[in-house]
Amino acid sequence: MITKSTLIFICILFGSTQALSEEDTYVHFEQANLVQGRVIWIDSCEGCHAYGIAESPNPLKAKDWQDRVVKPIDILYDHAINGFFGPEDTMMPPRGGNDSLSDNEVKLAVDYMKALAEYYINKEDN
């Protein structure tokens, strides 16, 4: 019989090997817009997008973003600012649900998420 403490131990062990640090996973890029964008993205977008919550596309997974990075950037900005429904009625809420973000801040977050997605797509290709 597996005891409670063994199970908890397994959970912790699994957690420690699985969770890469935020620093490594959420790549730092040098461009000024991406430095700002990273902070906004972690604060307001990561909670859904990095885990696929509500079926949001995860920029760490190449297949989630392959068809999106090629969309014109203005469409991605518009979808992030005004909200967007996917073909199966999935919902990207306007400004990711954070009404206090300005249009410009949302755009910076989109820039960062797109750059992160491109980074992971290239990584998979190599």
């Binding site: 019989m1 597996i2 409670k4 199970l7 908890i8 959970c11 957690g15 699985q18 885990y51």
Partner: peptide, 22 residues
Amino acid sequence: DVEKEGLKFVAENKGQNYYATE
């Protein structure tokens, strides 16, 4: 206790589930 520990665990370790016996 398991419910309390489990809810705390899933809140602090996003993306993971919690399993135990009680």
